[in-house]
């Protein structure tokens, strides 16, 4: 049975072979498009994993809240955003300038330094996670 030995088998084979239908035009292109679209989802991933970014940001936010609570004498300010901007723009900028110019500002509290370091690290991590990606396997 494995081989086409008799007349009926040969005729059936002919019938099947002659009735072959062409496959739909563009099938190959369509399949390749689907494969490519699928692979795009996995092709790039951020260098900094989302959980690292969110952890860093969360830590930064927690420290900032703690800082403002301390600055306000143990109670929350009603306008933390304003306080934050004020801190970053005035004191933070002053500290940063002192750092790069070498002029020491002795009145600067230690917490400011820690906060600024966290701020800079968070800024860099944000830049990396948004702006950079690496190629991974297409499958």
């Amino acid at each position: 049975m494995d081989k086409l030995g008799n007349n009926d088998d040969r005729l059936l084979k002919d019938l099947f072979q002659q009735s072959l239908t062409t496959s739909p035009p563009g099938l190959s292109e369509e399949v390749m498009k689907r494969i490519e679209e699928n692979s795009k989802v996995f092709r790039y991933e951020p260098i900094i994993k989302p959980w690292i970014w969110w952890s860093t940001s969360g830590l930064f936010a927690a420290i900032m809240v703690y800082l403002f609570v301390q600055l306000e004498g143990g109670s929350f300010s009603l306008f933390p955003a304003y306080e934050m901007i004020d801190f970053v723009v005035t004191d933070g900028a002053a500290w940063f300038l002192s750092l790069i110019t070498g002029i020491r500002l002795p009145e600067l509290p230690g917490l400011y330094v820690i906060t600024m370091i966290i701020f800079i690290v968070s800024g860099f991590s944000l830049m990396f996670s948004l702006g950079r990606s690496q190629k991974v396997s297409f499958r």
Binding site: D14, L15, Q17, Q18, S19, L20, T22
Partner: peptide, 30 residues
């Protein structure tokens, strides 16, 4: 749902089923 206009022979065995048209052949077999 066979579109007969799209039926086309890919293999030219001319002897055996000479009496049948290609599209008809496919319909019968199907």
């Amino acid at each position: 749902e066979l579109a007969e206009s799209e039926l086309k022979s890919l293999n030219g065995n001319e002897q055996v089923i000479a009496g049948l048209e290609q599209s008809h052949l496919r319909s019968v077999l199907d």
